[in-house]
Design a protein around this nucleic acid. Structure first.
Length: 154
DNA sequence: GCCAACGTTGGC
DNA sequence: GCCAACGTTGGC
């Protein structure tokens, strides 16, 4: 099983929103690297840290689970969507996504600051300066450590 | 195929 | 609101 970190702006879609809907297609990702992770590497059952970006403070808010195989992102075909991509066709979709399912919210948000100050988590991609990728792989030790710091049991 | 210009992300 | 980082676009 692989582990991941997925970013979302809580003003747009937060861990609480995911809890309410239970399951959400992760649409709108328009970065090839992030797409490739969903397309090729994610497997149903993989766990992901749900990260709140552009928040005060930013940090990990909870845990979600990959809940589907990859399939074409419908929003790329929708002319009215802000994610519409004129170069994508039904025959050759450009963007792929998976569904995520709610697993649990941390009791309190674990701030990015705490990750950066933790000895074990120095190498985490989200701790690196200028890290913008919205979906990143996470080492199992890092995943476990984050959960421990948050006082959360899988 | 290079690279300058431009746009976006996201922490601060 | 600023700006560093970095991905994308398009002219050549």
């Amino acid at each position: 099983m692989s582990h991941w970190l997925i970013k979302s702006e809580p003003d747009v879609f937060s861990i609480t929103d995911l809890e309410k809907v239970g399951r959400e297609p992760w649409n709108g990702v328009r970065n090839y690297q992030a797409r490739n992770y969903m397309w090729k590497d994610m497997k149903p059952g993989d766990l992901a840290l749900f990260y709140h970006s552009n928040a005060k403070p930013p940090g990990v808010a909870g845990v979600a689970k990959v809940a589907s195989e990859a399939y074409p992102d419908p929003s790329q075909f929708d002319e009215k969507s802000e994610y519409f991509d004129p170069k994508a066709t039904q025959e050759k979709p450009r963007w792929w996504l998976v569904d995520f399912e709610y697993v649990g919210a941390f009791k309190e948000l674990l701030p990015l600051d705490s990750l950066k100050n933790d000895e074990v988590l120095q190498e985490m991609i989200v701790c690196q300066r200028g890290s913008r990728l919205s979906i990143t792989p996470v080492e199992k030790v890092h995943f476990t450590r984050v959960c421990k710091l948050a006082g959360w049991k899988p």
